[in-house]
Amino acid sequence: MSEERFHPARERRRRAGLIFRVACLASIGFSIAVLAILIVDVARDGWSWLSVDFLTRYPSRIPERAGIKSAILGSLWMMALTAGISFPLGVGAAIYLEEYAPRGWLTRLLQTNIANLAGVPSIVYGILGLAIFVRFLGFGRSVLAGAATLALLALPVVIIASQEALRAVPNSLREASYGVGATRWQTIRHQVLPVALPGILTGTILSLSRSIGETAPLIMIGALTFIAFAPTSPMDPFTVLPIQIFNWTAKPQAEFHDLAAAAIIVLLVVLLLMNAAAILLRNKYQKRF
């Protein structure tokens, strides 16, 4: 009786399981293969151009003399300022939304808008940056205008990641803190934030590493320029690694395409270092409850 109702079909189920496993393996294999082809291709073109001189020289019309010093320093400036603007704003907004805001339609509206902003194409932020920072606020085509534009771009992701981190803090912690008489500010300052910080930092670093690879919004605010000096103040004109790469790939001579490949390697290394830092921070400070 039970034999008739129950068809074990173990062979078929096992085969289905195997197919699924192979399909999953194929998808990861495909992504890694594409990445590997890209890296090998870039490395083959650019490897021979990489040298200390390449890192410490300014761009030049002569390929043998060209380097990326102004682009590296510009990217570092850009990263520091973008972090300085987007981190406090983003974490502040997240703390308000998670810890203070009343649960109501206004909060939901804010929440939806932030989630939508995270999906806005970067060139739109470029247009916004050109209108507001470059022209209206009169920052000109400066590091500050670029960083403010990129900070806008990074902000939604920083807010959402910080919210996730705050939400992951167990409520028992807050209740215990209130229980011994701490105020809300003391609870956030001494209990919630320290626990959430690794998650917040990871999210911030990941969104920053997306920002330093951005080209379109910076071209929009007019950063496509020959610059052979390092910025020394936030109001200086600048160039960054992705723009230098764009500039070189657009030149007709093949040597410049190889130089662009070398600059791509440098940009990839910077990105890897940033992502590694994010993982280290998370592993070092993460507490489990």
Partner: peptide, 14 residues
């Protein structure tokens, strides 16, 4: 700029 390292020249393409 090689001859005058103190001066900063920017060249745009508009």
């Amino acid at each position: 700029q090689i001859a005058n390292p103190g001066v900063r020249v920017t060249v745009g393409i508009s």
